[in-house]
């Protein structure tokens, strides 16, 4: 009797091709400041911040069942922590960005002690109330500029890592800030996607997928749903806080209205995930690309653009609840971020 050797693998042919393409794409994106215009760098910055926020919201809503309409709270907190350090206690920018994430996660714990008491749809509105409370509280602080906000001090932006080198390479001061912010968000984006992908393949991540599919069944095989929800909530708020710091570092100005915008940091994010495909890592990526296309063609229309986006979100969740990626994936069987483990016979 011949013995077969088996190996456990989760990668597929498509996923290997995709991984190779993704590495090439990331290398091109790193080199982009020398290859493309500054306008495009700003667009790419916006796309990637949106992608980071979308991946986080997707993890919350698509996997952990935490449908939040209040993630703008953590974008705003991250932004304000970063600006507070920059203005009052200039520490190295990278540390200030990290602190933004930590404070966002910390306030997230306090928020969760309240919002986690609310179930389902009530959780959604509860998170919105939290965001309002944080915004109103910050807008009252005259030391933080009250309702008009703060600007990033000139001296502080010159302490950004790589600022001097970029200046010597001929980038203007504000172009250098754009490029640094862009690289940082590129790093955040790649790390976020990889961490989420790795996490989904760990026992905890698989447990989360099980909770999403059937809470009772997951609990019966020993998955601690509550602990997982806390873990995901903390992690997402940490990343969202960092994203908030980067978004407003690039803008070099922060105010309560922009930092806590429910349209910018919740509505766009939610529609990106829903249209792209909720509950997959691929979905938000497709979603931001579609969002960017729509924006380039329709943003001049102002309110009409938002009407179209809202309508697309509604049609999408009713007609194709698993989004565009869900349609593609179910028809072709293609998975770019495979999570399932398959047995494969060797030799």
């Amino acid at each position: 009797m011949t013995e077969h050797k088996w190996s456990l693998t989760s990668s597929t042919r498509e996923s290997r091709i995709f991984a190779t393409l993704a590495i090439v794409a990331v290398l091109l994106l790193i080199a982009a400041p020398w290859l493309v215009s500054r306008g495009l760098i700003r667009d790419l910055f916006q796309i990637m911040t949106l992608l980071v926020l979308a991946q986080c919201w997707n993890l919350l809503a698509g996997y952990a069942g935490l449908i939040s309409v209040g993630q703008q709270a953590f974008v705003g907190i991250g932004a304000y922590v970063f600006f507070s350090f920059a203005v009052f206690m200039p520490i190295p920018p990278a540390l200030a960005i990290l602190a933004a994430g930590i404070v966002a996660a910390g306030i997230g714990v306090a928020a969760a002690s309240f919002t986690f008491r609310l179930q389902g749809a009530y959780f959604a509105v509860g998170t919105w109330v939290v965001a309002e409370v944080v915004q109103l509280t910050l807008a009252k602080q005259s030391v933080l500029g009250g309702g008009s906000g703060m600007s990033l001090p000139r001296e502080f932006r010159e302490t950004m890592p790589g600022f001097g080198i970029l200046r010597e390479m001929g980038f203007s001061k504000s172009a250098a800030i754009d490029v640094i912010a862009y690289w940082m968000v590129l790093l955040l984006c790649v790390v976020t996607i990889l961490v989420i992908y790795r996490f989904m393949r760990t026992p905890a991540g698989l447990g989360l997928g099980a909770v999403r599919d059937n809470v009772i069944a997951a609990r019966s095989v020993g998955v601690n749903a509550t602990r997982l929800k806390w873990l995901v909530y903390l992690g997402c708020n940490f990343i969202t806080g960092i994203a908030g710091a980067l978004i407003f570092m690039q803008k070099q100005r922060v105010s309560p209205d922009t930092a806590f915008s429910v349209i910018d940091w919740s509505a766009f994010v939610i529609f990106v995930v829903v249209i792209g495909g909720i509950g997959t890592i691929e979905g938000p990526i497709i979603g931001v690309l579609i969002f960017y296309l729509l924006q380039s063609f329709l943003a001049d229309l102002g309110p009409i653009y938002l009407i179209i986006l809202g309508a697309l979100g509604i049609v999408s969740i009713l007609v194709a609840p698993s989004g565009i990626w869900g349609l593609i994936s179910s028809r072709t069987g293609i998975v770019l971020f495979p999570i399932r483990h398959n047995l494969k016979k060797l030799g």
Partner: peptide, 20 residues
Amino acid sequence: LPPLIVTFGLSILIQNGLLA
């Protein structure tokens, strides 16, 4: 999720419709 997304979309739609 669907009722939340639909009514949230509706909220954006009405708000911007009124604005327009």
